[in-house]
Design a protein around this nucleic acid. Structure first.
Lengths: 252, 252
DNA sequence: CGCCTTTTTGACATGGATCAATTGTTGTGG
DNA sequence: CCACAACAATTGATCCATGTCAAAAAGGCG
């Protein structure tokens, strides 16, 4: 992930804000036409390939951006190279930190990612002048905080089997939400992440993740087509393996 | 913690906003005298004893509050009673969630805690009318998010010894900050948390926490007076045990 | 002093990490 | 279409950090 062969990110044709595919869900949702014009004037669209690093931990971050498409991840390292993913960024999450010079995380593209970015000073000015924008940022931050805390429970207390099951539930739900329904029995979906990425997210090793997949398969909880496509015959069984308290909130 | 003997929380004499000890650091920092009057009219001060639960997970939360004094904690449970602390609340952190009915966490008092609370509807109206207040909330949320992510690295990848060392660094820094300086060699401080609470925070068992204290003591990293008071002869040594990347951000 | 809670320590079990080998997959050039 | 290289995933054998169970010490307090 961190050392993928270098390709430069590609500047893609400018997408006008009024034509933005995710505008309804992003910060600019409440902007009027004149504000959209202003945004258009200062933004840039960039696409990164899976595996590319968008920001290195310790880098000075000169921009502020939104994930428009794809999945990005925040990760931190310990001295000896141990690595933990600490956040997933899905549209319309934001990259960058108000009033903070350097990034405390690596930010990298898990899948192909398109971001919409703004020069930091101009974006900060924008935030000051738009309470609606600020409200958006606050709600996004609170959602991410809830997700982070959910994940702390997983990292601190769940077994490997529960961790892997929880991740599958998360992915299934996200995939279903993309298609505007809920995951049901027999649900079939692609996992998109490779074992290494899952391991970084779950605080496990690749080998343990793989073993848990095999175990869940043997126990009939999941059916593996190839290693990236999964069918869940009985969704309640999978949920049960995830170990969550029944009244627990929705994951992410 | 969860089953401490019941005492009712005490309503304490109303502290006027203009006399509030932490006002500079709290959301009301930017309010003028007239706004303070308004706040005074709707707020309540309550104190909880160490071990009392302020909010139970799943409860409907009717108020929105700020920690004025003491330490509170957010925790989540798995079905079988495994328990993980997912956040520490120190002044001026807030309790409650905009636009969210029920609490996903237990909130309980680690030490004696005084909170300043507002009825939810009125507080939400206040937020709508005050961009400064909203800005405060956003910054607080982003700080908590950073802290949560730092902790995810600890939970997912650190060894027991690194976890305990990290916690000691965190506490020493907090204690030092309270006294307006930085922890130096020979720094002496009280830990305030009992082993059980540390274990819940670190994703460990009580026994493992205790063993790591003994090990750190034997290795001369710390000197234990009684089990709650610690001296760090060489702070750099302790930092080294915490395993953080040198360029890593400040914890919490 | 005796009761209760907290902490420490010991003996042992085990889940997941580590090290290593094998198999499967994808892409490339002949 | 095959051969080969690079990568991804699985599986096996072994080790060790941490959990578990149990008992002993150390405080705190009426």
């Amino acid at each position: 992930m961190k050392h993928a062969p270098w390709k430069s990110p590609s500047l893609i044709p400018h997408i006008r804000c009024k034509d933005c595919p995710v505008r309804q869900h992003i910060i600019c949702a409440n902007c009027g036409p004149s504000e959209l014009e202003k945004l258009d004037a200062i933004k840039t669209n960039i696409t990164f390939q899976a595996g590319q690093t968008i920001v290195y931990a310790g880098d000075k971050v000169e921009f502020f951006g939104f994930v428009m498409r794809g999945v990005a991840a925040l990760s931190r390292n310990l001295i000896d190279g141990r690595r933990q993913m600490v956040g997933l960024l899905l549209p319309p999450d934001f990259i960058g930190r108000l009033r903070q010079e350097v990034s405390p995380f690596d930010v990298d593209a898990v899948s192909e990612v398109t971001i919409c970015q703004f020069p930091k000073p101009q974006f900060e000015a924008l935030v000051l002048s738009s309470p609606a924008l600020e409200r958006r940022l606050l709600e996004n931050a609170l959602d991410e905080l809830d997700a982070a805390r959910e994940w702390m429970l997983l990292l601190g207390r769940k077994t490997a089997r529960e961790k892997v099951s929880s991740l599958l539930v998360l992915i299934a739900r996200y995939d279903a939400a993309m298609n505007e329904h809920s995951p049901a029995d027999g649900y079939f979906f692609p996992v998109l992440l490779k074992r290494e990425t899952m391991a970084e997210y779950l605080g496990l090793t690749i080998e343990t993740v793989s073993r848990q997949f095999s175990a869940l398969k043997n126990d009939g909880i999941i059916v593996l087509d190839d290693s990236q496509h999964i069918c869940v015959p009985d969704f309640a069984m999978l949920l049960n393996e995830a170990g969550d308290d029944s009244d627990g909130g929705i994951i992410s």
